[in-house]
């Protein structure tokens, strides 16, 4: 009974509302896209606030601390206060930065995560834009982030930033390959790049069981793509202070943070789409709750890893990618192909 879903009902009533006001079905579609965009941006902002608090809490709990606990019950308003503080901070531009490149970088970095949200299947019939090349779109769009890191690194006119920017390019370009290869295994099983179809095909069995190797590779590559802990060389605060973010402060700096958490949510959501069965789950809860729940579990795993492991060195990072992940993911594709062939030959 998908129509029982509260979100779908809101969508349907909005559509009716627009149909009464706007001329023609195309205009209604455009209006609905705007609604979806606003919903996505709102989700990103609220999510970032929640995730920053969650990260600090998880970090605290794993380090036998309490994390923020002063503002509100269990420190719930800590991030809100932080955001207010960042917003009211002086917008400071260091001397000698490349004005436009420097100012544009946080904005450019924020674009890909927002665009990725368009294809996330939050629930049955709850995909903002159900592209038939959804996964391909995700891969393509998320690689734009590389440019933003390079812009921030180059525009800051700071040696630490340049090193960080260069590392970002090397790392993100390299790790894109195992990321795509790990996704490819799932795509081969479904024969579709459409996110809703991929989830639909997992109604019986989750692909984590069919593609465990691909799942692990995806986790590693996604952590590297989002510059999280064992692979956070781009920031590498003990070596290069904060990498490309060194010269930013106030809300510009917060944009980087926002983008980081938005993309963390995006890769976790893609993981739950591809491997954890998306919105499928016992029907006492609506599908989007299951989807979000699985996504948050994935986010917890990323945080858990972050607060346990030390960071790799830049050459080890490259070695891990090119010497291990890519051959293993290629082998995984081969085995998947053989498996599919055998399955078909047996008359499945």
């Amino acid at each position: 009974m998908p129509n029982d879903d509260i979100l779908l009902r809101i969508g349907a009533s909005l559509r009716e509302l627009f149909a009464g006001v706007l001329p023609g079905p195309d205009a209604v579609d455009v209006a609905m896209y705007f609604v979806a965009l606003i919903a996505c941006v709102a989700l990103i902002f609220t999510n970032a606030v929640i995730l920053i608090l969650a990260e600090r809490k998880v970090a605290g709990f794993m380090q036998s601390r309490l994390g923020p606990h002063r503002l509100g019950p269990y420190g719930m308003f800590q991030t809100v206060a932080d955001v207010i503080k960042l917003l009211t901070k002086e917008d400071y531009r260091p001397q000698g930065v490349d004005k436009w490149v420097w100012a544009m970088a946080p904005v450019v970095l924020f674009v890909p995560p927002v665009m990725v949200y368009a294809v996330l299947p939050f629930g049955k019939n709850l995909v903002p834009v159900d592209l038939n090349i959804g996964i391909f779109y995700f891969v393509a769009v998320s690689s734009v982030a590389t440019i933003a890191f390079l812009m921030a690194g180059w525009g800051s006119n700071n040696k630490y930033s340049v090193i960080g920017g260069m590392r970002a390019v090397a790392q993100m370009v390299s790790y894109e390959i195992p990321l795509v290869f790990s996704i490819l295994g799932v795509v081969m099983l479904t024969g579709s790049l459409q996110t809703s179809v991929i989830v639909e095909k997992q109604s019986g069995i989750w692909f984590i069981l069919l593609q465990p190797v691909a799942f692990v590779i995806y986790l590693i590559a996604a952590a590297a793509e989002t510059n999280r802990m064992p692979f956070d060389l781009v920031e590498g605060e003990s070596e290069i202070i904060a990498g490309p973010f060194t010269e930013y402060s106030g809300m510009r700096w917060a944009m980087f943070f926002l983008a980081e958490y938005a993309s963390l949510f995006a890769v976790s959501a893609i993981a739950s789409t591809l491997f954890l069965g998306g919105w499928h789950g016992p029907s006492f809860l609506p599908g989007w709750v299951w989807f979000l729940g699985k996504t948050y579990v994935m986010i917890f795993v990323f945080m858990w890893v972050r607060w346990t492991f030390p960071r790799l060195r830049v050459d080890q990072l490259m070695a891990l990618c090119w010497k291990y992940l890519i051959p293993v993911s290629l082998a995984n594709i081969l085995i998947t192909g053989i498996g599919i062939f055998a399955y078909r030959a047996m008359g499945g």
Partner: peptide, 15 residues
Amino acid sequence: VGECGALTGFVFAIR
């Protein structure tokens, strides 16, 4: 270890 990135190890040692 904190400088290598394992901040949890650092906190454990300090604790």
